[in-house]
Design a protein around this nucleic acid. Structure first.
Length: 261
DNA sequence: ATGACCCGCGCAGCGGGA
């Protein structure tokens, strides 16, 4: 089976790129982040014509996640379990989880953590803590699961181009990286790093300052696999060609393939 | 020397992205 995760930076701006990519790659599931619209504005009909049903968790203007699938899915969660909503407010649209083909797919868009001052960064860490607890619970249940999406974490120094981030950036602060390591210590496998153990394998290039032509990128989109799924891992690679398309997202799809169970 | 974008919202310019 094949799945991909892709921060599309507005699904309405990128609808044609997404349908083209689906036609060319035919993943079983595509996990989208930063759709930047409410569920009612999501182009479900266009994706259905391409052979994909949509599960959408949207909000106005910001954030938003969706799972496109050409296999049957059952929705498990529409927000991250264990994470409280802001006082008197709605959850931000950053998590949706389905079960398909005997696997739980958690699609996540982690807070960046660089805006909102100390509170903004604390919210990122709280989000990561809840993600760790959710992973722990699924491991205890012996669930086969994937936690994939835009983590907004560059786990190691080789995961960002020299000079692309300052030392106090929320994407690389020690507290951020410590929580990402906890996911690994629990027993999850970073699919891309498992198959490409060393060197840059970026998934994001800023629109500014010629970052793409200079290959000044970041590796911040990840697919973390539970132990039995890691044993089935056969492929994991960012689709760099997508960054050369007209009006691309600043992220490219990360494509993962698993052997049949 | 050192490149300054892109999105939604809504019609100017700002907050957010990373």
């Amino acid at each position: 089976m094949k799945f991909a995760t892709w921060n599309v930076n507005s699904v309405r701006q990128r609808q044609g790129l997404v349908t083209d990519w689906l036609a060319a790659n035919r993943p079983d599931l595509l996990l989208l982040q930063e759709i930047k619209c409410e569920a009612g504005q999501f182009p479900s009909d266009a994706f259905r014509e391409a052979g994909y049903e949509s599960e959408v968790v949207g909000q106005k203007s910001y954030n938003g996640v969706a799972i496109l699938s050409r296999v049957p899915v059952a929705v498990m969660h529409r927000h991250l379990p264990g994470l409280a909503a802001p006082d008197g407010g709605e959850h931000q649209a950053r998590y949706v989880e389905v079960r398909a083909e005997g696997i739980v797919f958690g699609n996540l868009y982690l807070p960046n953590g660089n805006s909102g001052g100390a509170d903004g960064y604390a919210a990122k860490l709280a989000w990561m803590d809840a993600l760790v607890e959710h992973a722990r619970a699924m491991l205890a249940d012996e669930t086969d699961f994937v936690l994939a999406g835009d983590y907004n974490v560059a786990p190691a120094d080789e995961d960002f181009a020299p000079g692309a981030l300052s030392a106090d950036d929320a994407l690389i602060r020690p507290e951020t990286r410590r929580r990402f390591r906890t996911l690994r210590w629990l027993g999850l496998t970073d699919a891309l790093r498992a198959l490409t153990p060393q060197g840059p394998v970026y998934t994001f290039w800023d629109y500014q300052a010629g970052c793409w032509p200079r290959d000044r990128g970041l590796r911040i989109d990840h697919a973390m696999l539970s132990p039995r799924l890691a044993e089935r891992l056969t492929g994991a690679m960012p689709d760099r060609m997508e960054r050369d398309r007209p009006q691309p997202s600043d992220h490219v799809p990360l494509v993962v393939t698993l052997d049949d169970a």
